[in-house]
Amino acid sequence: MIFHLNENDIQRYLDHQLTDQEEQKFNHHLINCQSCQRELKYSQEIYHLLAQEPDSQLSPEFEWGVLSRIQQEERISHSSIHDDIVMAILGCISAFGFIIYLYDFNSIMQTLSHFLPSLNHLWNMFKAVFTGIPGLFKSDYAVATLIILIALSFFEEHLLRKQSKPFLL
């Protein structure tokens, strides 16, 4: 009875998966067996066909499309970091405005100016600008209200940019 090479042997041979001993036996059989030589030839033909590049084409604008979408992604991620920083600063300013309402303003400023002498100077300048306009802001509370309103309006603008509808003002 003659044993021929089976399909599994042929594929393992072509995939370089045979051991040295198996490969020796394989080659030895192949020399004298025309039927197995033919089988190997067909398999090699299939391997050759499978390694050919199929006709799979994308449009010439494909790369440009991907890169422009990535640029968009980058812009969104950068602007969202920027927005977060701005929101944090505005939140601090608003909180400061509310503290002025709740506590005695002069004692707060005295404590703060102890650590930050320039802060008191800055506050006096800011107050002078608004109280200088006749009939407008005459008290610390009015200036504090103005700070809160400015902060909230910026807050709102950033939210508007991030979301489709406003929820504050």
């Binding site: 199929p54 799979s56 994308l58 449009s59 494909f62 790369e63 499309g65 991907v66 979408r69 990535i70 992604e73």
Partner: peptide, 28 residues
Amino acid sequence: YKKLVIHIVFRMIYNSADREDICQDVFI
């Protein structure tokens, strides 16, 4: 890696209208 992505997408998806969009989504 464009070829690798194209090979996979084109082998799996036969709707030619969607192939390019899927390839773009893969890169994103």
